Every structure is written in C-alpha cells, then in structure tokens.
Computed example of a mutant assay.
Amino acid sequence: MTEMTYRQALHDTLREELLRDENVMLIGEEIGIFDGSYKITAGLLKEFGARRVRDAPISEEGFTGAAMLGLRPVVEIMTINFSLLALDQIVNHAAKIHGMFGGQLGVPMVIRTPGGGGQQLGASHSQNIELYYAFVPGMKVVAPSTPADAKALLMASIRDDDPVLFLENLALYNTKGDVPDHVEPAEIGKAKVTRTGKDLTLIGYSRMALVAQQVADRLAESEGLDIEVVDLRSLRPLDRDTVIESVKKTNAAVVLEDDWLTYGIGAEVAASISDGAFDYLDAPVRRVAMAEVPLPYAKPLETAALPSIDDVVNAVHETLDAVGRRR
C-alpha cells in the first residue's frame, strides 16, 4: 500500500497503460511539452514520444474524434466546460456509432476532464455538467473520489470498448489516499459503500463523496450518529441496487452533488430511491447541491454558492428531526 495524491495516481495509471498497450495514446492541449495543465502527464512525452503523447491545437471538436482506427485515445479536455465545443463528436457520434452500426464499430475512447468550482475560475470555467453526458445512452460516465478508485477506474475506462467520460474534480488533485500495490480494473457501474451505518444514508460522487465521509465522521464523533456513506463512482451506468439496499437498511437518505439541484444527478438518485425503497423511507429524501446561479468569481460568493459540510449536516439534522430519530 502506497500513499499518493489523486494526481499521481492518474499519472501512474496513464504510464502503465501506455506501457501495457501500444494502441493507447494521449492527446490534448498542452499535455506534452508543457506536461499538462495539471501536470498529470508530466514526463510522458519524453518517455513515449510525440506519436503517443500528442499536443493538440485549441480545437476540441477536432482532436476528440480519433478512436475508430484501432487506437485507444485518452483525450484530455482542459476543463469539462470546453467539452461543450466537442458535443457533436461526443454525443452525436462517439455515443451512437456502436449502436448505429450493429456493433461492427466501436469508439474505445476515454475523455479525461476536470470540473468543479472553488478555484476562482469564473462561471464559464467552474461548471459541473457531467449530467449532459450521463444522460446519453452509449456513453459511460465515471467520477472517482479517491486515488485508489481513480487508478482502478481509469484502468477500466481505457480498456473499455465504449466511450467513457472520466470526471475529475479540480479540488481532488492534491488529495491523498492509500493505493494498493497491485490494482485491478474496477467494475464500471458499481457503487461502493465506504462507511457502514444504520441511522441514515449519505450518497455522493466525486468531491461530494469525500464531503459525505467527513460529515459522517463528524456526526459520529459529535452526536453519536451512525451514518452510512455510498460513493456512486459511476453515473452511467448508475448502480441503483447498492443505493436502494442501503436506504432499505437506514430508512433515510440525503443525496449530495456539486452541480445544480434542478434536473441534477441527485434528482435521478432520489427518484430511484422512491421507485425502489419508498415503503422503507421514514422521511422524504433530501438533496444538497450548489446554488442555482452561474458561479461567482468573488471568493466569498463562490464559497457561499458551493455546497458545504454545514449544508450537509443541516440536511441530515432536518431529515432525522422529521422522524424524531436524532439522539
């Protein structure tokens, strides 16, 4: 077991996959000579050469369409906001080709891209728009929250024969965690119960899965609450079964997300709980999300707009108070 940052786990996995399969290649803006905007591809151009680590021009629609000729490209889009420029390639083509041609062609492409606010990058560079892609049949969307899961899910994504959007939150790059010395590819579409409990289920993904863990630990210490945490890890396919089984046990749920509340991932999770565990609920499912505004640049306003630990604690209290279950 080795402690490393989320950033290092991604770097090491890319290197290992480049060594494992000569058809794996990296392409994106500034990933080569500059070592990547977030230094995840540091040193890979020097080691593998320009044929396999390719600096791309500022043209997302152009360099996103490279996966139908036998290669397995890992496309780095500098932020998920810029992926909107390649929506036609991703949604109208990559996600559709396998189905439209009866499985004769596939698009084994990974799109690595960070999202999220909190970095004072302004409204057009701080969005969480993974829902756009999780909505589309033919796509897979994963959102690991820890270095270990980042490694296991990136391995699985690169080896998958379908297009995968690999979501990275900017706030996670410097976070640390233990990574096993031998990692197997994760199962895409499988959530993980990261903390067992019986009083309430907290459900999150990416950064908010870590916030859920922090809230559960805090409330255990301060109030003796025994909270279960489910890290979704995958948004399409969505592991409804793990979520529903957890809620059947705890009888209460709060869903966390970094995106907007209206039409968000949390709405889908809440609907899934209603479909599969309605008779087990002692209180309505509550959701915690960011304010429904373009994210402000000013730091105090940006912080106020993003979901916080206190927001989640309040939602837990309101849920348990509704049924008189707080200790």
Rank of each mutant, 00 (worst) to 15 (best):
L121T: 06
V323F: 13
Y280T: 08
H93F: 11
R195H: 11
A220V: 01
N314F: 06
E47Y: 06
N251K: 08
M78R: 11
N92T: 09
K190P: 03
L18F: 03
I40R: 00
R159Q: 15
H125K: 10
A56H: 03
T196Y: 14
A186R: 05
G264S: 07
V75A: 08
G102R: 12
D12I: 04
G99Y: 15
M68E: 12
L84N: 13
I265C: 09
I40G: 05
I31V: 09
T242E: 02
N81G: 08
L172P: 06
T41P: 03
E187T: 14
V230F: 07
F34Q: 15
E228W: 04
D226P: 02
R159Y: 03
G122P: 06
V136C: 10
V211K: 01
G138H: 09
K176I: 12
D21E: 08
V247S: 04
L45D: 06
G62D: 12
D239I: 07
L238K: 12
N128C: 15
R327V: 11
M4A: 05
H93I: 10
G138D: 12
D282L: 05
V211I: 14
I244P: 02
A283Y: 01
T175V: 14
A271I: 12
A304E: 05
T196V: 10
K39R: 13
S59A: 15
L10P: 00
R287D: 01
A134F: 01
K39V: 05
D311P: 11
S59I: 08
V247F: 11
L131D: 11
T2I: 13
N92D: 10
D55E: 11
A191R: 07
L167Y: 11
P57E: 07
L85Q: 15
K248P: 00
E292V: 04
E130C: 06
V313P: 04
I97K: 13
R54F: 02
E30Q: 13
E61M: 13
A289E: 00
E76D: 09
F135E: 14
G118H: 06
F278S: 09
A283N: 02
M155R: 14
Q214M: 15
M139I: 07
L18Q: 01
L14W: 03
